[in-house]
Design a protein around this nucleic acid. Structure first.
Lengths: 335, 335
DNA sequence: GCGCTAACTGTTAGCGCTACCATTCGCAGG
DNA sequence: CCTGCGAATGGTAGCGCTAACAGTTAGCGC
């Protein structure tokens, strides 16, 4: 067993000594290289290289009062649309020297609070949340902290700070409109129990309810966004005596299950039953018939969030208003 | 525009003053509550609550020389099997007070190096990598840093430190064996150009090459692990004059594309063409026929990595040997 | 030559927290 | 009464880095 004492990590002082200058100059080479003479700069770089110096970012953050961190709070990174938003944010932040600190809370309120606390503890310069932050205590904590916050994927009346999303209600309405235009009248909605799904259903209902002879059913599958849940959802609907000619699923993954269940039952899509989803995921494009869906600009939401933050952190006054990035109806063979 | 000066975040000193005790005692309430009298503890908690105190973790890390961070390096978090490994790690670390810092390098060597540097800069107490770290310079940097490292998802002869994975070569061989037993002889492999896929192919070849009358073809789709790439892969193979009765895809996602392409061409699976994948993803279970696949213990690899680290950080001497968590052949209808 | 500016580098004093040691207090045992 | 001991708390001195200011030097115009 190796019991030799490591001399510990190399410090800025060691680099300075090796290069024959003072610590502050090394710091400047790292952060404002233009202020340092070319020769000195070269010697410092050589010393850094030779010693394998890696600056201590905790000490740097403490002294400079800039952590360089943006906290990103995600209900689950396993959902590919959310990871796209994270990717969009990372892209937007790539050139800013800001690093994202990803926190996946797995839809658990406790973990959400803990992660937020950790982000504030690391003095994140901004927080981006996928979805709204619901807990009033957390909202208060964030407001009090004065840290810029961007909530994405939803639009609400009382943003904590900034907001970039789309209207789930309008999305539901758009799909409802499409289904009506295609002469579907016995319509069902399959989604989770979250508020986002509720808003989509509300939009759907707003459009469908006034139409004479149209019916609308709702089936809640618990938050489980799996193909299997989609199959089970369609199966449950079909096993009811109620007539049905179109089903709108709150996610393409669920809708894929719907397509597969219909195929397993020998139902022709869309002739006997129309199926639509949301998200424009690859699985919906790949199955047959390809899925009518609502394309959500997940990547762009992340990008816009990053841009808003960058401007805000640069001192520009970014109006706190919510940005609506909209969505897009993509009509394919399944309706 | 609001130009009022914020009083800045609450510091430990403010809490101490409010509770009528010294800063160090507040620190102890947070880290070694048993050492503080119950009454004092209560007063401190009340003060923390009242002021909304959130400890500065950068300062804490600097003073205590413990960052509480475990860096996790992932080629892409969009691949669900990798996110499962991350989840397994998080589970194992949940009670340890360690927090994961996730870095997704999108298969870019530059970003990999930058992220690793950032993790070491934050003085991560350990690093977990999904996949091997290939760049010799990075390997040297990690070895020199003395930070515990766990490489997962692969087994190699020269781990940087710890290692928990499975043999991709053995996995390929197991699938080859299965296909031979089922009397398939004209076999193709579709995978990426990465070393992991290469190892799977090598295992396949080891088993198949010696068999008289058996043939083996390899088709590389660039790293794109999409359903569409799988379809295109099977299409390319079928458009060759060469006979073919089984295809092993390096991922269930690719294999799903294979199943769909076969269906689109009216080919019966597995009668006219057998299809197998790797990963045991939901999509393989959902399609028809369900996919024969190799189940990889992604979650367990993360969990084991976390356990090894926890023991190592607790001072136990954990042998540097590689842990093989194996895999499992799951035979379903597609072969 | 002088003042003046620009370019470069150094000194000092913390950032907010905790390790280390010291101190205080109450009480059991002699 | 003193000693010894454990429990509870505090003072001091940094952790490694950078902001703010302070030199120092060279070059320039007059």
């Amino acid at each position: 067993m190796d019991t030799s004492r490591k001399p510990g990590p190399v410090r800025i002082q060691d680099v300075a000594a090796k290069a024959g200058i003072s610590a502050i100059t090394v710091s400047r080479v790292l952060h404002q290289p233009a202020q340092v003479a070319a020769g000195t700069r070269a010697r410092v770089h050589a010393a850094i290289e030779a010693l394998g110096y890696i600056p201590d970012l905790a000490a740097s953050a403490l002294a400079s009062r800039r952590s360089g961190i943006v906290g990103v709070l995600v209900p689950t990174i396993a959902n590919s649309v959310f990871s796209e938003t994270v990717a969009g944010l990372s892209d937007a932040l790539a050139d800013t020297g800001l690093q994202t600190l990803l926190g996946d809370y797995g839809y658990s309120a406790d973990r959400e609070a803990a992660l937020l606390r950790a982000m504030l503890g690391r003095r994140a310069e901004a927080i981006v949340a996928v979805g709204l932050i619901r807990d009033p205590a957390l909202r208060r904590m964030l407001r009090a902290s004065g840290v810029p916050v961007v909530e994405t994927w939803d639009l609400a009346d009382d943003p904590i700070d900034l907001m970039v999303g789309f209207s789930n209600e309008a999305a539901g309405a758009a799909m409802g409109h499409h289904l009506l235009v295609r002469h579907y009248r016995q319509i069902a909605f399959v989604g989770g129990v979250d508020e986002r799904a509720a808003a989509r259903f509300a939009g759907l209902r707003r459009v469908i309810a006034p139409v004479h002879g149209a019916t609308l059913t709702r089936l809640d599958r618990s938050g489980d966004l799996s193909i299997e849940a989609g199959r089970a959802g369609l199966a449950a609907l079909l096993d009811r005596p109620h007539r049905l000619d179109a089903v709108f699923f709150a996610s393409d993954v669920l809708a894929a299950g719907g397509l597969l269940e219909a195929a397993a039952r020998g139902l022709s899509v869309p002739r006997q039953i129309a199926i639509a989803g949301l998200g424009d995921l690859e699985i919906g494009r790949a199955l047959s018939p390809p899925l009518t869906t609502l394309r959500i600009h997940a990547h762009e939401m992340g990008r816009r969030a990053g841009e808003m933050l960058t401007r805000r952190l640069a001192g520009e006054a970014v109006p706190g208003a919510a940005v609506d990035v909209g969505f897009e109806l993509v009509v394919r063979g399944s309706t």
